[in-house]
């Protein structure tokens, strides 16, 4: 679904991305980015860290959405479809895997797809040490799910909206939207890698008055790295989803998404043995400078961008 990928990655997708600078606004304020040379280095670093992590999470989310969720979500029936839209209100409560969703959940705990989405979202949380970045990622994710639900209606997105009503991290939302749009995990990874640099690049054009053609040239120079990052992310999710048999005891008896076969042994499948141990092996490249920029940005007296 190449055309769907273009629509999903297009900066004109009305999902609120235009108001996020990915740390560039604060980097400009701090004097760390003043022109195309600085910007190129900033983007390269961002792609290698936040970009890679986002790509891997998006691929994992797309895989989860593509292979595991649709049938189960349909079984959840109207409870899922009638779930309220994700909203900022939910941010008032801490993300807690065990907490109740805003919709009543069946006795015996939340259904498995809900648990899986929460666990994957928790992996994103664990890779986002700055509270400001968590907030920004959840805001963007919430807006993307809001938008994607209307563009690509799908039980996948309804399930995610119910699982994480305060807003899943943006890469998780992007992967779920990619699944809903018919994209594959590799494409979801590429879209996430692409978004990790195009947003800040566009923001830099606006903030510094840079030549937009020169900045697009920088992005074109990064294109091979984008492809490579997406490939690496996809490889990481394959590795994470396919542990060696017997390597992880109980966890290895259950395979989250093995080649579209769906959840495995029904006797063993269940939230208590879900595949989060394997998602833990996804890339976790840290970028302390981006964390600091995000935190300082929130404290600034004047801000054009949300993040």
């Amino acid at each position: 679904m190449d055309a769907a990928l273009l629509l999903l990655a297009d900066s004109r997708l009305p999902a609120g991305g235009h108001a996020h600078s990915g740390g560039i606004e604060e980097a400009v304020r701090a004097g760390a980015v003043t022109g195309p040379g600085d910007l190129a280095r900033f983007l390269r670093g961002r792609l290698a860290t936040a970009g890679l992590v986002a790509a891997a999470l998006a691929a994992a989310a797309c895989e989860l959405g593509s292979t595991c969720d649709i049938g189960s979500a349909r079984e959840l029936g109207s409870a899922v479809i009638d779930a309220p839209a994700p909203s900022a209100n939910a941010r008032r409560r801490p993300a807690d895997l065990a907490s109740e969703s805003t919709a009543p959940e069946p006795a015996g705990g939340p259904p498995e797809p809900i648990v899986l989405w929460r666990r994957l979202d928790a992996e994103a949380d664990a890779r986002t040490s700055s509270p400001a970045q968590r907030e920004a990622a959840r805001t963007q994710g919430r807006l993307l799910v809001r938008t994607a639900r209307r563009i690509w209606p799908s039980p996948v997105l309804e399930t995610l909206a119910r699982a994480v009503p305060e807003g899943a991290h943006h890469p998780i939302a992007l992967g779920a939207a990619a699944a809903a749009a018919g994209c594959d995990p590799g494409q979801a990874a590429l879209a996430a890698a692409y978004a990790s640099v195009t947003g800040p690049a566009t923001a830099a054009v606006r903030l510094l008055g840079l030549d937009p053609v020169a900045v697009h040239r920088l992005l074109a120079d990064l294109a091979p790295s984008l492809d490579e990052t997406a490939r690496a992310a996809r490889t990481a999710t394959r590795t994470a989803a396919r542990p060696e048999r017997g390597a992880a005891d109980a966890d290895s008896r259950w395979t989250p998404c093995p080649d579209g076969e769906g959840t495995a042994d029904p006797d063993l499948a269940g939230p208590e043995v879900a595949g989060d141990a394997w998602w833990a092996a996804l890339p976790a490249a840290a970028a302390p400078a981006l964390d600091l920029l995000a935190e300082n940005h929130l404290k600034a007296a004047t801000r054009l961008f949300v993040s």
């Binding site: 004109r12 997708l13 009305p14 999902a15 609120g16 991305g17 235009h18 108001a19 996020h20 600078s21 909203s87 900022a88 805001t139 919430r142 807006l143 809001r146 938008t147 923001a203 606006r206 903030l207 054009l304 961008f305 949300v306």
Partner: peptide, 18 residues
């Protein structure tokens, strides 16, 4: 609105709707 007030009310209204 990320330097683009008109975008937030016309082209990409997601944040305002939220």
């Amino acid at each position: 609105t990320g330097c683009c007030p008109h975008t937030a009310i016309r082209d990409d209204i997601a944040a305002n709707l939220d």
